[in-house]
Design a binder for these strands. Structure first.
Length: 423
DNA sequence: GCGATCAGAT
DNA sequence: CACATCTGATCGC
């Protein structure tokens, strides 16, 4: 029987070593402050953010892996009791602060888990990541690639974030008398906000918990929780709605919203009972990838600023690696496409994947039936008797859990993030 | 009361 | 249809 050795972004089942790619909630489902199943490997920045995300967590479980480094981890086969040496290389994913890829190499073969990643064309951090990756592989074949396929569809084509950030600055600068709200989540898009702050020589308001994160990341001077100091506020995404903007324009003054996102947002009517409009995914927007800055509404702009790689960037990584096998880590995307569909032919005769189905290998067949679910975590099991890619047996558990309760209460201040009465 | 989980929202 | 996250409800301890 195969045994659980390594888990990546997967926390429910026994494993000898757990790896966290980044701290977004869909990669930490199953983690909690009481979790203590084993050593948890992460990047230095994730380590720094961890206590605020999971207060009370036993921090002695954390093992920090420096970005660009390769570490040896000794695990033990529970079937043969033999020692298994795992070499793990930690690579900058350039997705959100602390986000990394993990490359595992050993007698079992080589596996790359990209986690969520954005390697913008011509970006320095992306190039450094590629260099670290290729140096670590040192000419060896990659047996299995688990890749961020969020935007694995040729319709998705967005500019490097540096370009999109300029567009955000331009929109703000062309509304000199407006208040601005920019939608962000709990982690990510700091580079955009820092760029805006520097370009326009202003501070940016964030909600109190987010300000704490900014301080941990070393951006304390740029952000404030005093609304009197700036006209630009970064708010949780669920507060950047048409309703909110209409209300702000009515009761406060001219305000526009900016959604930095790679998704094809559009406007749709609300359901019959309710009046007004809401933001939703609009597939027809996919046809028009000529403009990466779009006015969705009188008060709302959408900029194609994405922390996930677009199609061409996914293609570039797969072309470099030509893995023997691969899978996407995201299956909940509304336009989910198995990367094999587009890139299987790049990966040689051993790929053995039927383009019309997601995979043809028995090892992962049970995974496929849950493709409609959301998942992002993986277990790597080692099969002692085989050596190549087929030595890896994989499973995942589809979960979409929410952290609630105390964390919820602690963060409830966020819901008045767009008012000015919470200093 | 708290954590886990689900339904539903943007 | 949602990059990730929030709210509310329920259930069992």
């Amino acid at each position: 029987m195969d045994q659980g050795l390594i888990s990546v972004d997967k926390w429910g089942q026994p494993s000898q070593a757990y790896f966290l790619t980044h701290l977004h909630a869909d990669h930490t489902q199953g983690l909690s402050r009481r979790w203590k199943k084993g050593p948890l490997f992460c990047s230095p920045i994730t380590r720094k953010l961890f206590p605020a995300t999971f207060p009370g967590f036993d921090l002695s479980l954390l093992r920090v892996l420096e970005i660009g480094s390769t570490s040896s981890i000794r695990l033990v086969s529970e079937t043969s009791r033999k020692e298994i040496l795992v070499e793990v290389t930690t690579i900058d994913a350039n997705h959100c602060p602390g986000a990394v890829m993990y490359l595992f190499q050993g007698e079992f073969g080589s596996f790359l888990f990209t986690g969520d990643f954005r390697w913008d064309a011509e970006s320095q951090r992306g190039q450094q990541g590629k260099d670290v990756l290729m140096n670590a592989l040192n000419g060896r074949k990659l047996d299995f690639l688990y890749i961020d396929n969020t935007y694995c569809n040729p319709s998705f084509c967005f500019p490097p974030r540096a370009i999109a950030a300029k567009q955000v600055v331009d929109i703000i600068a062309s509304h000199p008398l407006h208040d601005i709200i920019i939608s962000i989540s709990n982690l990510g898009k700091e580079d955009l906000l820092v760029h805006v702050a520097h370009a326009l020589n202003i501070k940016i308001w964030v909600w109190p918990e987010r300000l704490q994160t900014m301080h941990l990341l070393g951006y304390g001077d740029i952000f404030t929780k005093d609304t009197g100091l700036t006209r630009v506020r970064a708010v949780p995404r669920y507060n950047c709605t048409i309703d909110t903007l209409v209300t702000l324009n009515t009761v406060k003054g001219p305000t526009i919203g900016i959604i930095p996102s790679g998704l094809p947002w559009g406007i749709c009517s609300k359901n019959k009972q309710k009046q007004g409009q809401r933001i939703c995914i609009d597939k027809s927007q996919l046809a028009d990838n000529s403009s990466s800055a779009r006015m969705l509404h009188q008060y709302l702009y959408c900029i194609s600023y994405s922390d996930h790689s677009c199609f061409n960037e996914i293609q570039e990584l797969i072309t470099i690696l030509r893995p023997t096998r691969m899978r996407g880590i995201v299956s909940s995307s509304f336009c989910y496409v198995n990367p094999v569909r587009y890139f299987g032919q790049l990966c040689g005769t051993n790929q053995n994947n039927d383009p019309s189905s997601s995979t043809s290998t028995s090892e992962v067949k049970d995974v496929e039936v849950r493709q409609a679910d959301s998942f992002s975590g993986w277990d790597v099991f080692h099969r002692e008797t085989e050596t190549s890619a087929t030595a890896a047996n994989l499973s995942y558990r589809s979960v979409k859990r929410r952290r609630v309760s105390q964390l919820r209460r602690e963060r409830s201040g966020a819901k008045i993030a767009y008012t000015d009465d919470d200093n």
